[in-house]
């Protein structure tokens, strides 16, 4: 068929401009939400005290290192359990504040929301560690790995215990179990790091870390991941 006739046909069949097309199409397209977008979205809902705490810790570590404040490393280590507790509490906000049912009925399952939060906080604290540990190690002449393990051990221990506690019936009822665990671990860490405590121990803490530190951290990391998985899986829902 000739081009010209096709053009005439098109005109003959032309319909008036549809009126509701755009509105309809906008509604129609089920928007795909990518993982980075979802992480970003959840990050926007992480409360500011969490960011603030992380930033303060980092600022303290950096500042203390630059100014050579003597106890910087020990203070950072002792405060680490609280960072862990905060991140566990932040992850578990849905159940704590009764938002989980509404969140579960959205496009994403609550599991993926939890996962997203854990990932965001994980990234946040990893950044914090990557900045603080080398600064501290450099400033106080320690070995980088030793400093990192010193910081990580109390952090990860608190993570593991808090995750277990928050899942338990008792933990869910009280709501302060994570804080209590953090305080306890913090105290223990403080005690261990005291010079005079060393005589009560079979092995000096530092010696222990030097020999076994990396292994301990790896085991704790593995346990943390397992506990996080359990927490995610515990959410009763589809998929």
């Amino acid at each position: 068929m000739k081009k010209q006739l096709e053009k005439l046909l098109a005109e003959a069949y032309a319909a008036p401009e549809p009126k509701k097309k755009q509105a309809f199409l906008m509604n129609l397209k089920p928007r795909e939400v990518s993982l980075p977008e979802m992480l970003w979205q959840q990050a926007a809902y992480v409360r500011w005290p969490v960011w603030l705490f992380a930033i303060c810790m980092m600022a303290f570590a950096i500042g203390g290192s630059i100014l050579h404040l003597e106890d910087t490393e020990r203070i950072v280590t002792v405060l680490m359990p609280f960072t862990a507790a905060i991140s566990v509490l932040e992850t578990n906000r849905s159940t704590r504040f009764g938002m989980s049912e509404i969140e579960m009925a959205t496009r994403f399952s609550l599991r993926s929301v939890l996962f997203a939060r854990m990932t965001i906080l994980g990234i946040l604290y990893a950044v914090m560690l990557c900045v603080s540990a080398p600064m501290l190690a450099y400033a106080f002449g320690g070995k980088l790995l030793l400093t990192a393990t010193r910081i990580l051990i109390p952090y990860l221990s608190t993570m593991i215990l808090s995750l277990i506690a928050e899942r338990s019936a008792l933990g869910r009822k009280t709501g302060y179990s994570s804080a209590a665990i953090a305080a306890l671990i913090s105290l223990v860490t403080f005690w261990i790091s005291q010079e005079q405590s060393q005589k009560f121990m079979v092995l000096r803490y530092t010696t222990l870390l030097e020999n076994w530190g990396i292994l301990i951290v790896l085991v704790l990391l593995l346990l943390t991941i397992l506990e996080q998985q359990k927490t995610i899986r515990q959410v009763e829902a589809f998929a």
Binding site: Y45, R47, R93, F97, G98, M99, E101, I102, A105
Partner: peptide, 10 residues
């Protein structure tokens, strides 16, 4: 769209 019987809020 779902409204649970009990729900909380942050």
């Amino acid at each position: 769209g779902y409204l649970p019987q009990d729900f909380g809020y942050y």
